[in-house]
Structures are given as C-alpha cells and as structure tokens.
Amino acid sequence: MKIAVDAMGGDFAPDATIQGAGLAVKQFAEEDRLVLIGIEDVVRQKLEQFNISDDRIEILHAPDVIDMGEHPTRAISQKQNASIPVGFRLLKSREVQGFCSAGNTGAMHVGAMFSIKAIEGVIRPGIAGFVPKENGGFGIIMDVGANADCKPDVLFQFGEIGSMYANRVLGIDEPKVGLMNLGEEEQKGTLLMQAAHQLFKITNKVNFIGNIEGCDVFNDKADVIVCDGFTGNVILKLAESFFDMIQSRKIRNEYFDRFNYEEIGGSPILGVNGNVVIGHGKSSPKAIENMIMLTHRMAESNLYLTLKEYFTD
C-alpha cells in the first residue's frame, strides 16, 4: 500500500510534515510505502536534519507550492506541478491508495471534486468530522464545512455515507444515525429538517434513531450526526475550543484530552473516488502522524469502493 502526503502543506511545513511522516512510517507494514510530495531538495534536507532514514519513504518532486491563502480554483489550475495537484494525479492513476494534506483546504476540496471526482450517484461529497463520545470512542459528524446549504436528499445521503464510514472504519455495528435538530419531535425544526426527517423515517437503509439535539453531540445516543456544513462546522470548532480552554486553565482530563485535534489528525472527504484526508492547517508533527494513519486506515478499509458499489446498485 502507498500513501502520499503533501510535504509542503501546513502552517509549519515542511518541518512538521517531515517529522510527522517519520513518526507515521514506523507504524507501516514492511511492504507499505509513504510518498512525500514536495520540493525534493527541501524534503531531503529536512529528512537529514531530523535524522529520518527509512526505505519505506519515497520522494516525488513537485516544484510548486500552493500557499494557504491562495484562491483554491485558481491555484489548482495555474499550479499543476504543485504538491496538491500532483497528489491527486497519483491518486487518480491508482499509483497511491490515499492522499492527505494539511495545506490549503479549499484546494484539497477543489482537487478532489475536479480530479478524482464524486462517486456516481453521490449528490454532494461531504467532509466528515469526529467528536469524542463518553463511551470512549468517536462519533462522526457530517458535513462539517463542504456544503453550507443542503437539500433533504443530500442530508439523507450524508446519513448513508456516514453510517458506512462508522461501520467500515470505526468498527461500529449498526451505527445509530441522528439528525441534528432543535427538538426530538419529528415536526420540529425548519422545513428542510422536517423533510429530511421523513426521508430517514421511511427507509431501512440506515439505523435512524430520530432527531437529536445539541446536548446529544457527545453522549452515546447517535454514532453518526447528520447536519449541513454550516451547522457541522460550528459544532466542530466549538468542540475544538473546549480543549484550548481546558489547556489554558492547566486542567488535565482524560476525556477532554481527546478533543485535541492532534489526536484525530484530519477530516476525510467522503463520496469521492479515492481516500482523501484534509489535515488542520496548524498541524504539529503528532497531528501529521495521525492524519497519515487515518488515511492508511481508510485505504485498508477500501471504503470508497464500498460506497461506489452501494451507490451504483
């Protein structure tokens, strides 16, 4: 298996990405490979600087870099030899089984949509986020930013896609799917939420447990939380802020330590023809390590092939 990582992506790249890659590759099987995409001289210099030497690491030269603040569509079209477009070309040609980057989020999303493209039958791919649950595991929330406005059928598909991820990657049997709303009753919420609720209610494709509220995000009521990208992004950023507040007060708590973005590593783009993970822009080496390992787990599960088969039946 080959996993590619954008060595130049992130606020602290290439130092953090190279150090994180060195940590991740130690967990790879002997036959696995990690492809570092970036400016070759820089990548080699950093590998030497951090005393990282492993036969499972390969370097692919990409002379250009898409900066964090660049316009995504323009950057993808004008910088075809940058690390992000090169990574997607490798993924499209199946030379690698997964690609991840802590670089320009918009460029990663645009690259996924216009390079490997959405799976046929998927209306809108979404970005998945993770929330720590009181039972010790993680729940999935979808969408967390790709689609600020959604129609009922898109929300329903998020439930299907999220349920398959929870089962295949997180190992949850019959994941419970909840629709984020402002009340448990099915007539509650906007017209959009009411219509989406009815779509979930009449199907047996997912284990729908009804509406959930904000107080249910971190408990065990639902394994998959369905919402539009606007709502999901607000929830995810709020959850991340809990860890920062606790850290600033010098409080250590085993449960709240799991709110640290470093522990998760990144957010998968689900519903596209390949395994893609977007890391946090401020990723540390530990976050990069976990981003790479999340991509590896997705590749092992062949989730996108499962989704492809499901939506083309």
Score class of each variant (00 low, 15 high):
257 D>K: 02
50 F>R: 03
106 G>M: 04
234 V>H: 08
189 G>W: 12
44 R>H: 09
157 Q>S: 06
231 T>S: 13
201 K>E: 13
244 D>N: 08
142 M>K: 00
81 N>Q: 10
310 Y>D: 11
105 T>Y: 03
189 G>H: 11
270 L>H: 02
275 N>E: 14
296 H>G: 06
123 I>C: 11
123 I>N: 09
233 N>A: 12
243 F>V: 08
86 V>P: 00
86 V>N: 00
88 F>A: 03
204 N>T: 05
210 G>V: 15
105 T>A: 10
117 K>Q: 13
262 E>Y: 09
270 L>D: 06
4 A>I: 09
304 Y>K: 07
153 D>V: 09
180 M>Q: 03
113 M>G: 07
202 I>V: 12
19 Q>P: 10
186 E>A: 06
89 R>K: 11
210 G>K: 05
6 D>C: 09
91 L>M: 14
299 A>S: 13
7 A>G: 06
72 P>D: 08
146 A>Y: 01
69 G>A: 11
53 S>I: 12
91 L>F: 12
151 K>E: 13
172 I>H: 03
46 K>F: 15
267 S>V: 09
212 I>P: 01
17 T>L: 15
3 I>A: 01
171 G>E: 11
23 L>E: 11
189 G>M: 12
33 R>M: 11
243 F>W: 11
67 D>A: 10
22 G>E: 07
11 D>C: 08
38 G>D: 13
3 I>Y: 03
199 L>K: 05
99 F>P: 02
46 K>C: 10
98 G>A: 14
216 D>C: 06
275 N>I: 11
167 N>R: 07
98 G>R: 02
130 F>Y: 13
146 A>I: 10
168 R>S: 10
272 V>W: 03
150 C>W: 00
58 E>P: 05
19 Q>S: 08
59 I>N: 03
127 I>P: 01
96 V>W: 01
64 D>N: 06
308 K>V: 14
235 I>S: 10
240 E>C: 08
29 A>E: 15
202 I>A: 06
224 V>G: 03
143 D>R: 02
274 G>V: 08
118 A>E: 10
185 E>V: 11
236 L>S: 02
255 Y>I: 09
269 I>L: 15
17 T>R: 03
129 G>L: 08
41 D>T: 15
148 A>K: 06
79 K>E: 12
275 N>M: 10
209 I>C: 07
157 Q>H: 04
150 C>V: 07
57 I>K: 01
159 G>M: 05
304 Y>L: 11
292 I>Y: 05
124 R>E: 14
81 N>E: 14
102 A>F: 03
271 G>T: 12
192 L>K: 03
100 C>L: 07
110 V>F: 12
44 R>N: 07
278 I>N: 04
120 E>C: 12
50 F>K: 04
65 V>A: 05
87 G>A: 03
57 I>M: 04
199 L>E: 06
126 G>S: 07
226 V>R: 01
57 I>T: 05
66 I>G: 00
231 T>N: 09
20 G>C: 10
80 Q>M: 05
52 I>K: 02
182 L>V: 15
96 V>E: 00
300 E>I: 13
127 I>T: 08
27 Q>V: 14
212 I>K: 01
197 H>R: 00
261 Y>G: 02
65 V>C: 09
257 D>V: 04
259 F>K: 02
190 T>I: 12
